[in-house]
């Protein structure tokens, strides 16, 4: 082998999943022989996850009127951008917040719609059902066809339990969950270590499409996204970047149907 030596920059890029596949394979192989470095990199990956999750709520907040350019289209608010009148900003802001229906308080209260709401529902469902030793699912995996059919009917679109064998996850079953936005489908999977993963979905009234976002709800990590009016969440306990790749796998399977 004439591999180039592994550099610290390679390791950093590996943490961010930005190496070309061939180089990533070489780094993976090298890490097998360097357990301390592997441990260090795992900690860096964990940093990425918690930083994103800790800061995600800021990007989810509705834009304050002062930063919403659409509001600056109207002549009434154009002067907000005039530097001489910037002192009037606060007064203008209060005026605007009245005019637009956004009370100042609503910037800080958690949104009750969109994928942020979906994330909370999914995490609660995970917390309640995944830990239920007696009956985590309503219908078990051997009734999968019945389960898929039930979800398809209640969510008004064809639903099939994603096949997550590639991620080492086996379907346990699922149940219908009641939410303020109507019924939601919950599939539960189990990994080889016996940890549960929830795949949660429901139709979205707002935010019919949204990119994949990391979430952290009451200590449970997960990812949410929305495609074609359908919102999805993957929550659970998985080491490293496992949840993200599982979420990507789920997303690719639903995009194909």
């Amino acid at each position: 082998m004439t591999d180039k030596p592994i550099t610290e920059a390679d390791l950093q890029a590996h943490v961010d999943d930005r190496l070309p596949p061939e180089r990533a394979t070489q780094v993976e192989a090298w890490l097998l022989d360097h357990p301390l470095e592997a441990k260090r990199l795992a900690a860096y990956r964990a940093q990425n996850i918690i930083l994103r999750a800790a800061l995600a709520p800021i990007a989810d907040e509705p834009l304050p009127p002062a930063l919403d350019l659409r509001l600056h289209r109207s002549s009434r608010t154009k002067w907000m951008f005039h530097p001489a009148l910037k002192v009037a900003g606060i007064a203008g802001l209060i005026l605007l917040s009245g005019a637009t229906g956004w009370g100042l308080r609503t910037w800080t209260t958690p949104p009750s719609v969109g994928t942020a709401a979906l994330a909370r529902e999914a995490a609660s469902s995970y917390a309640v059902y995944a830990s239920d030793a007696a009956r985590p699912v309503e219908l078990a995996a051997n009734d999968r066809a019945v389960l898929d059919n039930w979800f398809s009917k209640r969510l008004s679109r064809p639903i099939r339990a994603p096949d997550l064998q590639r991620a080492g996850l086996t379907l346990m079953g699922g149940r219908l969950v009641a939410t303020a936005h109507g019924p939601a489908g919950l599939y539960l999977y189990r990994d080889r270590g016996g940890r549960s993963i929830a795949v949660y979905m429901r139709p979205m009234e707002v935010e019919g499409s949204d990119h994949m976002k990391p979430r952290l709800e009451d200590g449970v990590a997960g990812w949410t996204w929305a495609d074609n009016g359908m919102g999805f969440a993957v929550f659970g306990a998985a080491p490293g970047n496992g949840l993200h790749s599982t979420a990507n796998l789920v997303r690719s399977q639903f995009r194909r149907t």
Partner: peptide, 25 residues
């Protein structure tokens, strides 16, 4: 700062007890 409860099982496995990562950065 947003009140994030930063305790994920994945992190606990790595011996990292999560408190306020934002205060740390």
């Amino acid at each position: 700062l947003p009140q994030a409860h930063l305790a994920t099982p994945a992190l606990q496995e790595q011996g990292v007890q999560q408190r306020d990562v934002l205060a740390l950065i």
